[in-house]
Write a protein that binds this DNA or RNA. Sequence first.
DNA 1: GAACTAATTTGACATACCTCTAATCAGTTG
DNA 2: CAACTGATTAGAGGTATGTCAAATTAGTTC
Lengths: 115, 115
Amino acid sequence: MTATAGQCCAPIAREPLSETDAAELAVLLKAVADPVRLRLLSMIGSHAGGEACVCDLTDAFDLTAPTISHHLKVLRTAGLIDCERRGTWVYYWIIPAAVARLGALFTPLAEPATA
Amino acid sequence: MTATAGQCCAPIAREPLSETDAAELAVLLKAVADPVRLRLLSMIGSHAGGEACVCDLTDAFDLTAPTISHHLKVLRTAGLIDCERRGTWVYYWIIPAAVARLGALFTPLAEPATA
DNA sequence: GAACTAATTTGACATACCTCTAATCAGTTG
DNA sequence: CAACTGATTAGAGGTATGTCAAATTAGTTC
C-alpha cells in the first residue's frame, strides 16, 4: 500500500488512487457488493453484544446453510469479520478497522467537486 | 427505500439493513467493486475542475477504449457519474450525493461494537 | 460410542462479468 | 461531402460468482 499513513488509503477524491491501492480496495468492496453479504454484515454489526450466531443469521434468509456459510467465509477472507466457535455454535463479529477503510474512501467525495 | 430521511439509508451498524435497501446498495457497490472503475472514479473526482475527458482516462490504462467506455457506462448507470459531450470530446464528473451514500453506509461501523 | 444438531467443505451448474475485435455513431476539417 | 479522430455499441469468449445437494467435521448428550 502506498497509503497515506494512519487511517486508511488515500481518499478517493483528493488524488488518483494508485493501481495497487485500487486493486486492494476492490477486493474489499467485492466482498461487500452483494445483497446477502451486506445484510449479514449489518446484522452482525447491529447485533446486541457485537456478536451474532450463525444459526440466527441463517434463519433470516431464504437460503441454505452452506450458502450463508459461503458468504460468511467471503467476508472473513476479506478481513471484514472474524469468528470463534463456542461449544456447538459459531459466533461472528465485525472488525471495525476494516470497515472504517471503506467509509474513509468515499466520505471525502461527499463534498462537491471544487466547482 | 425504507431509508432514514435525509442523508442516506440506515447506516449499516445501527440496525439491520432492510432487504430492499441491501439490494439497492449492492448495485451501487458492485459498480465500484472493480479496480479499473475505482481508479476511474478517483481520477474523475480528483481531476482539476471536477471533470475529466475520456481521452485522458483511456490513456491511463492498458485497456482498449471500448473497455474503458464500458466501465464508465457501468458507473453512469449506477448513478455515480454523469457526462456531457462538448464538441469532439466527452467529459465526465462525479455525482457527490451518490458517493456520499456509500460513505455514510460504512462510517458508523468505524466505531467498535458496544464492547 | 452411537445418535443427533450445528456448521463447513466439496463439487456441480447456471448466470454474470471483464475484456477484446469489429462495426457504428458524432463532430471536425480539408 | 469525404476523410479523419473521438467515443460508444454489438457480439463473442473465457473466467469468476452465487446457489444448491451431498458429504464431512465439530460438539453435545444419552
